[in-house]
Computed example of a mutant assay.
Amino acid sequence: MRYARTAILRGSIAAAADELNVAASAVSVAIDQAEEAFGITLVTRARAKGISPTSAGRVILRRMEDLLDRYDAMLSDGAEMRTSLSGVLKIGYYAPIAPAFLPKIVKAMMTENPGLSLALEECDNARAQEGLLGGSFDVILFVSDAPVPQIVVERLIHAPTYCLCSAGHAFAGRTSVTLSELADEPLILLDRPVAKSHYLDLLESSGKPVSVVATVNSTEMVRALVGAGLGCSMLNMRPAPDLTYAGDGTVCLPINDSAGGLALSLGHVPGPRRRVVQAFAEACHAFFETPEGQALIVDG
């Protein structure tokens, strides 16, 4: 299984042989033996192009990794070694303010498990799900409005949509605003999948024409433009500081006549999970139940 796993991950029998310090024929035989044992084709082979996993091969790869993790833990000496986490945890995330919470979630895991490393990739919602199903990610953080059916979804937190205005705006002294009032303002929209259409649907429900003065694909740029006084915006999660990169103040206000919001969720594939994925999921749930996690949303 180690030989077959390494070959699949490297996409090459020769590269796997170099890494494992064995003959290429040994890796090739191992793949043949694995395919015979499972009764399915795990990889397709092409001359000069290496190998690539079949759809069944990707499923078996995850199960092999889980088995090898458990096997390594069983062989470790002492209770501390048996419970430690190791290897690479690959996380794909579609969460514009992930830097506000993800480091806090993984810090304890990293500190307590020196053998653990992370591979983080910011992506859009579709890429996150495709990467999970394709084996690029072990787990994803994403907006679960319409998840791919093959993905197991665990909701972490519901984030109501709120209004963002500058500290000098007339709204800043208020406790809330309405959709109708917001529709009268020049608007700066976050142009990211799922988010933009969600905000436009909410604004259209006010029955008023809206004036979008800028669309931006970065949450921090949205905050910077709002902080500079160029308009108001709508977002769902907020970072801890009210100041933008430019040093301008912003204010977050509930929208009191809107039930709209987006759910931040964990996604993983069905079946047994690696211990490190389970530990990460538990850490995420625990964090969003704390006051610090709840402070990331604006709830009227």
Rank of each mutant, 00 (worst) to 15 (best):
G78Y: 06
D77E: 15
A167R: 08
N256V: 04
L118S: 01
G92W: 01
L200N: 04
K90L: 04
F137R: 06
C165K: 01
G249M: 04
L141I: 12
T219C: 11
A195G: 01
L243I: 02
A34V: 07
S86D: 06
E130H: 13
F101W: 14
G247P: 05
D72M: 02
A119K: 13
R192T: 13
A17I: 05
L68S: 03
V269R: 14
S55K: 13
V143R: 08
Q150M: 13
R275I: 03
A228P: 03
A48I: 01
Y93L: 12
G115F: 11
G229N: 09
Y71G: 08
L190F: 02
L20M: 08
Y3S: 11
E204A: 15
L253H: 07
N256A: 12
Y162L: 08
V59G: 00
A263T: 14
V210Q: 07
E121M: 10
S197K: 14
K196T: 02
A95V: 01
A183Q: 06
Y3C: 06
G260R: 04
D184G: 02
E122R: 11
F142T: 08
L296N: 09
A73Y: 05
S180Q: 12
S55C: 01
A228W: 04
I91Y: 02
A98P: 00
H268D: 06
E185N: 00
S28K: 13
G11K: 03
D184H: 07
G267M: 02
G247W: 04
P186K: 03
D299C: 14
T6H: 01
S176E: 13
V148M: 13
A240F: 11
K107F: 11
M110K: 14
A34F: 07
R58G: 03
A263H: 13
A172T: 03
V88F: 05
A259Q: 11
Y3F: 11
D124R: 03
A146Q: 14
R223E: 09
I60T: 10
R127Q: 15
A246V: 02
I105M: 06
L20K: 02
R238G: 07
G92K: 00
N21L: 14
V143N: 06
M64D: 06
L61T: 08
I297F: 01
S166W: 01
